[in-house]
Amino acid sequence: MKADYDTLLKEFTPEQVEKLKEIIERYKGKPGGLIPVLEEAQVSLEYLPVPVQKVIAAELNLPLSRVYGVVTFYSFFTMTPRGRHTVRVCLGTACYVRGGKAIAETIEKLYDVKEGETTADRRFTYETVRCLGACGLGPVVVIDDEVHGRMKPAKVKEVLNQYE
């Protein structure tokens, strides 16, 4: 199969694509090259969508199903881009009864994302979690490493605006 690098240019910069070529070149034809290629590719490209997996499969002469199997097996690999910031809304029991659900819905509406997704501008990756051990502060939203307690739907935008 011919590797289709051109489609990658829709999602990645020419420098990133060049880097991918360079990574593959170093491992091509060597047994056991798949995982190191995926690791390095993820560092350079940040995520490994299907077109990238196709290129790697073609270049390493492996079935696409194998590459996909490895990418989805190891939690280190991701097929969707991560945002610059990670927003985690707690939906554990304590936060939930104190209105965590409404916070989650507000974020989903304001930024047009669903659980596990990243905003189109790659600003936020939005996730929900079950209990962060900060129940006294509920409902809790954690952005990157910072905990924001006693959240209200009306405050969501203001708090998130602190993160570019």
Partner: peptide
């Protein structure tokens, strides 16, 4: 595809 309880038989890349 995937792992653990979520493992599924998958075609190509899903």
């Amino acid at each position: 595809g995937n792992r653990g309880a979520a493992t599924l038989i998958s075609c190509d890349a899903d």
